[in-house]
Amino acid sequence: MDVLRIEGVSKNFGGVTALVDFFMVQHENEITGIIGPNGAGKTTVFNLINGVYPLDNGRIFFINQDITESPAHKRAEMGISRTFQNIRLFKNLNVLDNMKVACGWKVRYSLWEEMIRLPRPQREEKEIDEKARYFLEYLNLTQYANQRPDNLPYGIQRRLELARTLMAEPKLLLLDEPAAGLNPKEVVSLMEMIKKLQQDYNLTIIIVEHHMELIMKICSLIHVLDFGKKIAVGKPEEIKRNESVLQAYLGDGA
């Protein structure tokens, strides 16, 4: 099954072209990579998938549903979760509350019920609390539950962002440079973590990354962008040998 289908999507910022006529099909339960030099439009792809800003042309389908016009919060509700290149944790909330923010708002109870403390919202609150603690435990973050994210090491903050994406029970996970700022040891454990996540929760994952080793080791398919255009797509071994990819990364002299 195709989890995500991007058809001929373009995006301009003022006069700058960020993405041109981009096509992509993402199969279920696969890990796909998007690579490319800086400014190639990788993060733009993510921002268009989860609706940070509207696109200029083309359509995006999520599990056969056209989400091109859907607002960002609806797409998240449908099952698209993401992490961010520059970590975006809520500084004024502790780790546990950072998890709870992302609990998913599919089940709605009215404000009135909440204010006069009816049993339903209380039960739900308890469930959210348990779920948050469960995913913290799952990624070995329990000991940090009551701390502010600012006080935690960078690697822990990245892991917390990853744990937070699980709260909404996503189908599609977008990881924006998850290895940025991590040391080699942390990168290895990140790779294991991503694979484990994928298997445990049947996730479909798209990764934008500069860390070639990580991309080559865990992705089954790789898309290569350069100046907003897709210049190659293929399996890791194919991409390694692709002429235009080498050129984009190393320049014409290569």
């Binding site: 960002a72 998240a76 509700e77 809520f90 004024n92 923010v101 998913g104 404000l111 909440e114 937070r164």
Partner: peptide, 24 residues
Amino acid sequence: KTKIGIAIRAASSDIRTPSLMGIN
């Protein structure tokens, strides 16, 4: 404690990110 309360506090530190977590 409540979902909406935590969302209000989250929005106080960053108003753009909560919508990417399914919050209207």
